[in-house]
Computed example of a mutant assay.
Amino acid sequence: MPWGLCRAVARRFPLAAEKAADPVHAGQLATYLGDALAAYGLELAGGMADGQSYGEMAAALLPDEPVDALVLAYDIPDIAPGRATATYLSHLCPGGPMAFAVSDQGRAGAHTALRLLLDYARCGTYERALLVVAEQRSLPYDPGVAVEVPAAHCAVAVHLGPSALPAAVPRIVRGVDLADVPTLLGDLGPATVVLGGHLADLDVKADSVMLADPDQPMTGVWEALAALDGPVVLADYDPALRYLCVSSFGCVSSSSG
Results as ranks from 00 to 15, higher is better:
residue 114 L to W: 03
residue 124 G to H: 08
residue 110 A to Q: 05
residue 82 G to C: 13
residue 92 L to W: 10
residue 118 L to D: 03
residue 99 A to N: 08
residue 87 T to V: 05
residue 121 A to L: 00
residue 115 R to G: 08
residue 108 A to F: 09
residue 129 A to D: 09
residue 91 H to K: 15
residue 128 R to M: 11
residue 76 I to V: 15
residue 94 P to G: 06
residue 105 Q to F: 03
residue 120 Y to Q: 12
residue 76 I to N: 12
residue 93 C to V: 05
residue 118 L to R: 04
residue 125 T to S: 11
residue 80 A to S: 15
residue 124 G to R: 09
residue 102 V to R: 12
residue 101 A to C: 02
residue 78 D to R: 10
residue 120 Y to A: 13
residue 119 D to Y: 04
residue 115 R to I: 00
residue 108 A to N: 05
residue 76 I to P: 07
residue 81 P to Q: 06
residue 108 A to P: 06
residue 119 D to F: 03
residue 85 T to I: 14
residue 113 A to P: 13
residue 103 S to E: 01
residue 93 C to N: 14
residue 99 A to C: 08
residue 96 G to H: 13
residue 121 A to Q: 11
residue 106 G to P: 04
residue 89 L to R: 10
residue 85 T to Y: 03
residue 117 L to W: 07
residue 87 T to D: 09
residue 79 I to E: 02
residue 96 G to F: 07
residue 114 L to K: 05
residue 130 L to A: 11
residue 106 G to Y: 01
residue 123 C to Y: 13
residue 94 P to K: 10
residue 92 L to D: 11
residue 79 I to G: 02
residue 124 G to D: 01
residue 101 A to I: 06
residue 107 R to N: 08
residue 90 S to W: 02
residue 96 G to V: 07
residue 123 C to T: 15
residue 82 G to V: 00
residue 92 L to N: 14
residue 109 G to W: 01
residue 130 L to Y: 03
residue 83 R to G: 02
residue 99 A to M: 08
residue 91 H to D: 13
residue 108 A to Q: 07
residue 79 I to Q: 07
residue 108 A to I: 04
residue 88 Y to P: 01
residue 106 G to L: 01
residue 127 E to K: 12
residue 83 R to I: 14
residue 97 P to A: 13
residue 91 H to W: 15
residue 94 P to W: 09
residue 76 I to Q: 08
residue 114 L to E: 04
residue 120 Y to T: 09
residue 125 T to D: 06
residue 100 F to P: 02
residue 114 L to A: 04
residue 97 P to E: 09
residue 124 G to N: 06
residue 104 D to V: 10
residue 99 A to K: 12
residue 93 C to S: 14
residue 115 R to C: 00
residue 87 T to F: 06
residue 106 G to D: 06
residue 127 E to Y: 05
residue 101 A to P: 13
residue 109 G to I: 00
residue 132 V to N: 11
residue 102 V to C: 10
residue 98 M to Y: 11
residue 101 A to T: 13
residue 113 A to V: 10
residue 96 G to E: 11
residue 112 T to D: 05
residue 95 G to D: 11
residue 115 R to K: 06
residue 127 E to V: 01
residue 82 G to Q: 15
residue 100 F to W: 15
residue 86 A to Y: 03
residue 131 L to T: 10
residue 111 H to L: 03
residue 86 A to W: 04
residue 121 A to W: 07
residue 106 G to H: 06
residue 124 G to K: 12
residue 130 L to F: 03
residue 107 R to W: 03
residue 133 V to E: 04
residue 125 T to K: 15
residue 129 A to R: 10
residue 127 E to G: 13
residue 129 A to E: 08
residue 111 H to C: 00
residue 89 L to Q: 04
residue 77 P to F: 07
residue 113 A to D: 10
residue 129 A to T: 06
residue 114 L to R: 02
residue 75 D to M: 08
residue 127 E to I: 00
residue 107 R to K: 14
